[in-house]
Structures are given as structure tokens and as C-alpha cells.
Nucleic acid binder design. Structure first.
Lengths: 154, 154
DNA sequence: CTACGAATTCAAGTCGACTTGAGGTCAAGC
DNA sequence: GCTTGACCTCAAGTCGACTTGAATTCGTAG
């Protein structure tokens, strides 16, 4: 495990350095030391960043994600809570699957007004029924695309 | 289709009136008229709100959601774009499924440190690989729960 | 007709997650 | 040993999505 400087972590993770500093400040990641002023990260931080990204994709706040790690830094094992989150996630996944089907159908359906299409309405109802006070989720649309590392994609 | 006042729509949709006004201002919904100052909504707005909620769950911004509706208010049929969004969503769903599996496994796995568990690491790698600049997603965690209409969720 | 309470408008505030900018430091190359 | 450029800190700004509050307007019950 050789130490990586922030630029290297940024390059490998695709996150801007500012975000890495921010994450450190929030206690989501930790640097193993400094070289002068400069932070040095252990390469394990990359794995951790993957985990964080994953949690973000699932809609957890940074605080919640931080809560999954024990103070010592390793993932904490509150089996009960983990299972609960998995269940909630399952729920979200189902809603998203319904939306995906709805979109696909809308893209193919010849009906001029989707709201008139029975199939579409069924999907809609299903999705609405599945709904249970969910917070916004996320990454779906083809955006302007400021992809590369440089600017932080969010 | 009888006209509903904002309180009724709020009650039935579970959204606070302030959010409904905000959505109207943003062009996501429209009132069919006024009774004095008071907005009147057509009951179809409820369906539309479901669609909006669904889009939000999938991580679309309000602007993006608004973009899916044609100026006349019905869902617009840009089949190409719809299909693209469905694909992006598919992608997200897969990541979330990986996370769900990871969580379930973590809740069950006897290994003291999940990062040491080969199965967990595999899921992590998979998730990291699947990752392609995705925006935050969402609703997953069991929160403090300020459920009812009153306070807006999120 | 008056009072009450629900709705309205508009400006400002909040929250999470970052980004930006000004001004400072320091290790490495020349 | 000096310059340079990557990094640093800290405060402030931004963006999306709403919420809150003050001041005002009405429809309706009494």
C-alpha cells in the first residue's frame, strides 16, 4: 500500500480534489498523514470512495453513509440496520423498475397520449402504490456531460 | 372530473400546499382556474403528481421532468430520449441491486470486517465498475420519519 | 354584515453537497 | 537558493428543491 497524493486519488476516483477534502472534513475518508502540507492517502481510500459513491447512488446522505462506518473506519455491522436499508432499497428498485418499464413502453407505444394507454396507466398506478414517502433518488438522465475528472460531476 | 382545491390535492397526494404552488410555478402542474384567489385543480393532477414523484425517485431533476411533458401538458413522446432515459435507469437499477445484495450480505456475513470478505469485495468491484458518473439517487434509509403531509418529506 | 380562517403572493431562509476564490505554504527542479 | 506549481485553509458562493413568514384577500358561517 503506497501512499497516494490527492491528485492521484482524484485521478483514480474521478472525484475532484475539493470533494475529497470535503469528504475528509466530513469524516468519510481519512488521510494517513502528510508530506509537508499535502495529504497522503492509503490506496484503500479508493475502495472506500466506491462504497461512498454507491451509497450516494442509493440516495443515502453523506451523514448516513458516514454512520455505516464505525469510528475506527471500517464498515460497522449493525445487521439489523443494514437489513432494513437493504429492504428499503429493494423497494426503491421496484419503483425504478416500474418507471423503466413505463419509459420503455412509452418509447414504443403507438398511442398518442400515454395517459390514455392502459398499460401505461397500470404502470403508473403500480408505481404510485409502491410509493411510500421516498426521498428523491437519482442518476438517470443523459446530462450535459461534464464527465472527466476535472470538474466534479455530481 | 370535479375541481379540487389545493387542500384536497395536498391531502390526496401527501404533498404540502407550498410544494404544489412551487410545482405550478415551475410549470410541472397547472391549475384549471380559480375560485376567487383560490386555485382549482382538475383531479388529473393527481396522476401527474404520481408521475412527478416517480421521476424524482429515479433522480430526475424537476426541470428534466418538466421536459418530458410537452407544452400542452401531456407527456411528450421523444421516443429516442425516453429510451435513453430508460437505459440510464436500467444502469442505476443494476448498481442499486448490487448495493442491496452487498447490504444483505453484510447483514448476514460472519466476517468481522466486510472489506476482508471476498464476496463483499466482489460486489464492491462490480458496483465500482458499473459506475459511470451517476448523480445521487435516493430513498433508502429508514429516517426519523416526519411522514405526514405537514412537513414535506426529503 | 362582520368575523374567521383558509388561500394567496412575494421575499427570504434552509439544507445538503459541493465549488470557487483569495491568499498562503512548501518540496522539487533548475 | 530561488522559482514554480501543486496543495493548503477558510470563508463565501451556488444550485436544486422546497419551506417559512409577513402582509393581504376572500368565501362562508353566523
Amino acid at each position: 500500500m503506497k501512499a497516494l497524493d490527492i491528485a492521484e486519488v482524484a485521478r483514480r476516483s474521478g472525484l475532484p480534489a475539493s470533494t475529497l477534502r470535503y469528504y475528509e472534513e466530513k469524516g468519510l475518508i481519512a488521510s494517513v498523514g502528510r508530506h509537508g502540507l499535502r495529504r497522503l492517502f492509503d490506496s484503500g481510500v479508493l475502495e472506500r470512495l466506491s462504497l461512498i459513491a454507491l451509497g450516494r447512488t442509493a440516495g443515502f446522505t453523506l451523514e448516513e453513509i458516514a454512520g455505516v462506518f464505525a469510528p475506527d473506519g471500517r464498515p460497522r455491522i449493525d445487521r439489523q440496520q443494514l437489513a432494513a436499508r437493504a429492504d428499503a432499497l429493494e423497494h426503491t428498485i421496484r419503483r425504478l423498475a416500474a418507471l423503466r418499464d413505463g419509459l420503455r413502453h412509452a418509447a414504443a407505444c403507438p398511442a398518442p397520449d400515454h395517459l390514455a394507454c392502459p398499460r401505461f396507466r397500470r404502470l403508473l398506478r403500480l408505481a404510485a402504490a409502491t410509493q411510500r414517502r421516498a426521498r428523491p433518488a437519482s442518476p438517470a438522465a443523459p446530462r450535459p456531460d461534464r464527465s472527466r475528472p476535472g470538474r466534479g460531476a455530481r
